[in-house]
Amino acid sequence: MKEVTVQELKEMRDNGADFQLIDVREDFEYEMSNLAGQNIPLGGILIETDKISKDKPVVIMCRSGKRSAVALHQLEAQGYTNLANLQGGILAWQAEIDPTITVY
């Protein structure tokens, strides 16, 4: 499984890289704080594959990196080869990049 660190994600954003960020947390978690990715909760990830790009890099994130790893494996089983898991999820982003965001 390919992973990216929060520092690598920040560099991708800062450099204007063309990629898609998918947040697989539940709606209430996303509403509390998010990194402006597209919210597709894990339970619906296979139903909404039409919203996930196959043509550019896709970073999948959650709270800690566990649910996003599950989503990544489910999508790879559907033929995706362009996916990366955000190591440590939004908890790592808060700890290392932006301590002002709200996490639980």
Rank of each mutant, 00 (worst) to 15 (best):
Ile101Thr: 02
Leu9Glu: 01
Gly65Phe: 12
Asp14Pro: 03
Thr100Leu: 07
Ser53Tyr: 07
Ile47Thr: 13
Asn85Lys: 09
Met1Cys: 10
Gly89Cys: 12
Leu35Gly: 00
Gln78Val: 09
Val103Pro: 02
Glu26Gln: 13
Arg63Cys: 04
Ser33Ile: 06
Gln87Lys: 15
Glu31Ala: 13
Val6Phe: 09
Leu75Gln: 01
Gly37Pro: 02
Val24Thr: 12
Phe28Lys: 10
Glu26Asp: 12
Leu9Asn: 06
Pro41Phe: 02
Asn15Gly: 08
Gly37Thr: 08
Val59Pro: 02
Lys66Met: 14
Pro99His: 02
Val59Cys: 04
Ile45His: 04
Phe28Ala: 11
Thr100Gln: 12
Leu83Ile: 09
Thr5Leu: 07
Ala69Gly: 12
Thr81Tyr: 01
Gln7Ile: 10
Lys10His: 10
Met1Ile: 10
Glu76Phe: 04
Asn15Phe: 00
Leu21His: 01
Met12Gly: 05
Pro41Leu: 03
Gly44Asp: 11
Gly88Met: 11
Thr102Ala: 14
Glu11Tyr: 05
Ile60Cys: 06
Ile45Gln: 07
Leu42Pro: 01
Asp98Pro: 07
Lys56Met: 14
Tyr80Ser: 08
Gln78Pro: 02
Ala69Phe: 01
Glu3Ile: 00
Ile40Gly: 02
Val4Leu: 12
Glu96Gln: 15
Gly43Thr: 12
Ile45Asp: 00
Ala36Cys: 10
Thr102Cys: 09
Tyr104Pro: 13
Tyr80Gly: 03
Phe28Tyr: 13
Phe28His: 11
Leu75His: 00
Gly88Lys: 14
Asp23Ile: 07
Gln87Asn: 14
Met32Gln: 14
Ile45Ala: 03
Gly88Pro: 07
Leu21Arg: 03
Gln7Asp: 11
Gly79Ile: 08
Glu31Phe: 07
Asn39His: 04
Leu75Asp: 02
Met32His: 06
Ile60His: 06
Lys51Tyr: 00
Trp93Gly: 06
Met32Ser: 13
Asp14Glu: 15
Gln38Arg: 13
Arg25Pro: 05
Met1Pro: 11
Asp55Trp: 09
Asp18Cys: 11
Leu86Glu: 06
Arg63His: 15
Leu75Ile: 06
Thr81Asp: 13
Met61Tyr: 01
Leu91Phe: 15
Ser33Met: 04
Val6Ser: 03
Cys62Asp: 14
Glu76Gly: 06
Ala77Ser: 11
Ile101Gly: 05
Pro57Cys: 08
Ile97Ser: 08
Asp14Gly: 01
Asn82Arg: 11
Ile52Trp: 00
Glu29Phe: 04
Arg13Pro: 04
Ile90Cys: 05
Leu21Lys: 08
Gln7Pro: 01
Lys56Gln: 13
Glu8Leu: 05
Leu91Asp: 11
Met12Asn: 09
Leu75Val: 06
Glu31Cys: 04
Leu72Gly: 00
Leu21Ile: 06
Asn85Ser: 05
Val59Tyr: 01
Glu11Gln: 15
Ile90Glu: 05
Glu3Lys: 15
Asp98Asn: 12
Gln78Leu: 15
Tyr30Arg: 07
Glu96Thr: 04
Cys62Ala: 10
Gly37Phe: 09
Gly44Cys: 01
Thr102Gly: 02
Arg25Asn: 09
Lys2Val: 08
Glu11Met: 08
Gly88Glu: 06
Gln78Phe: 13
Ala77Gly: 12
Glu31Leu: 13
